[in-house]
Design a protein around this nucleic acid. Structure first.
Lengths: 337, 337
DNA sequence: CTGAAAGCGCTTACAG
DNA sequence: CTGAAAGCGCTTACAG
């Protein structure tokens, strides 16, 4: 318990050198004599010295900390990215600070401000709003790099990594239409969220291209949570006439829809055809297996980490905007009408 | 870009007071005159002053940071806990630093050391080994509180929150036996991991109580990953005679087993009866629904946060050891033989 | 190659 | 109620 912490001063005293020299030896920079360096290390070892990154940070600038602000780590999509980020950042000496926005703009702002006061070196964010981005703008203007993932936010000059949401959604809906469906429902989250917007746009576009008038009653909005999705899907399919097909916007929504349909005694694909955005473990386990639009999740985290690290190292080049293609995986959840 | 940061010195100058007074006004402590305080705040506002927690930390001691070291955030179990921790800690002003051990002892040590140098206030850990705990011991001895969750590690005097793994596993296996099964397989992770050990012990105990000799070939070990579990489960069921029932140790294993069985053309519960530890969304979606031993995941994170916060505030009372009961939820994945 | 000194931004006894 | 001063642990020009 609180036995006095060993500082560089103690090490210096023990090794009979100045603090400056001790610091140099301990961090191998500047010139230090081999023998002296050795002595300092031994002293440090003996005393049980450990670096104090906080003091170092105060002097040098910043802490080896990167902030990750997803909507919710519980979502498997973000959980995997968190994991990949940790894996990519840690070997480079950076630690991951996670703070969920819970898709709440106020909380996003608070969390950002909070991490900022910790002198975080950079951020990886899935912004909760496409319009309200002043807090990011300020941060970016102050020189802290931000990489946006999954979603892009407005006009900010920062890097972004997204997938072709619009195209993916279009492909899904086109496939449904090609199978004879016209009353195709859409289950997504709020239009404020970038991906939801783009996927909805793709849905609309596909309908339009096929000369199908879109029916607002078929478009349902729900927080991205299995539980909420269940309720919303039930409401969607209680309508008369009920939709014959459903496009869901992420794997949690798809799961919720599946549970809802089953609880209503509706069978996939006999009663309802289904295509979901985002692949997931169970998609191949259900009977029938679920047709999905897959996105290359495993490429997002590593790329985001790489870009951010480069920015932290001072890369000032033009912002990069990556758009990964999606890929439809046809399985058995769509029936021809 | 790097327009000079505003420090308390600037604010003090602007408000024409000393740095001490400015600090007092900005953090509302000590005595400050109402009018002066007002002036300082205004100045801070005008200048766009923001706290520098790093400097504060150097002075006061520690950063408002809590470390969370799970095996893998990608596991839904830990993802939920990460989320709950963030939710519980943030309102109390603490930030969550996540670093996965990936169930590797060396990495666990490295990560711990790393977070330690950041002057983290306390840790919530799922220790990867029950025996190798010296790194925790040292940390605890130095006065940094640690709360172990999901797993307990040896003799360390720190708080822990686990569930009744042994009892839960016993109940599951007893249920299988009651349904006439005798060749019951076990799919779990390495015995080094506390939960795996305890659940295996419960499995063994149940067999013993029922006078069934345990057969080592029915006990399979795999990293806790859907993919690994699939491979291991396949190997398990390729044996002759094949097991008639399976007990899986967590939801990822259960998922893997389900996929494996399906790929082998084995139907649940007709060919194989199944009980899994840990409930999960899809357990009620599959056909039949999966019988599970549920644990109260949603109570672990909040309780861990509460205990840790108390310790950080100086609570020196005896370590608490919480053991939550599990609850078997009988659904349709077990058939009488 | 090494040391004395200043300073990162903040807080806290200590005077007044 | 307010200020001058020291100091948290470290690093970095600047001399030598």
């Amino acid at each position: 318990m609180s036995r006095k912490t060993i500082t560089i001063k103690d090490v210096a005293a023990e090794a009979k050198v100045s603090r400056a020299t001790a610091a140099r030896a301990l961090n191998n920079y500047g010139y230090v004599g081999g023998e002296v360096s050795e002595r300092v290390r031994e002293a440090a070892q003996r005393l049980g010295y450990r670096h104090n990154r906080v003091a170092q940070a105060l002097r040098r600038g910043e802490l080896p900390l990167v902030g990750f602000i997803p909507g919710d780590v519980q979502n498997p999509f973000f959980a995997q990215i968190a994991h990949d980020l940790d894996r990519s950042l840690r070997p480079q000496g950076h630690n991951l600070l996670i703070a969920c926005s819970e898709e709440d703009l106020e909380q996003e702002r608070a969390v950002l401000e909070n991490l900022r006061s910790l002198s975080v070196r950079g951020f990886i964010v899935a912004p909760t709003s496409e319009q309200e981005t002043q807090h990011f703008q300020e941060l970016a203007a102050a020189g802290t790099p931000i990489v946006m993932i999954d979603r892009r936010a407005g006009t900010i000059g920062c890097d972004s990594i997204v997938v072709d949401n619009n195209g993916g959604a279009r492909e899904a809906v086109n496939y449904l239409v090609a199978n004879g469906h016209r009353r195709i429902a859409f289950l997504g989250d709020e239009a404020r969220i970038f991906t939801a917007r783009e996927r909805l746009a793709g849905y609309r576009k596909a309908l339009e291209e096929n000369g199908i008038e879109s029916d607002e009653r078929l478009i349902a909005v729900s927080p991205s949570t299995t539980k909420h999705a269940v309720e919303t899907a039930i409401r969607l399919f209680r309508q008369a006439p009920a939709p014959t097909a459903l496009f869901t916007v992420d794997s949690l929504m798809t799961t919720g829809a599946l549970i809802a349909l089953r609880s209503m005694g509706l069978s996939v694909p006999r009663d309802v055809s289904l295509v979901g955005f985002d692949d997931f473990d169970f998609a191949t386990f259900t009977d029938p297996q679920i047709t999905v639009v897959a996105q290359p999740i495993d490429r997002i985290g590593p790329l985001a980490a790489e870009i951010l690290l480069r920015r932290i190292d001072g890369d000032q080049s033009e912002p990069q905007h990556h758009v990964f293609p999606t890929k439809m995986i046809v399985r058995g959840s769509v029936a021809a009408l």
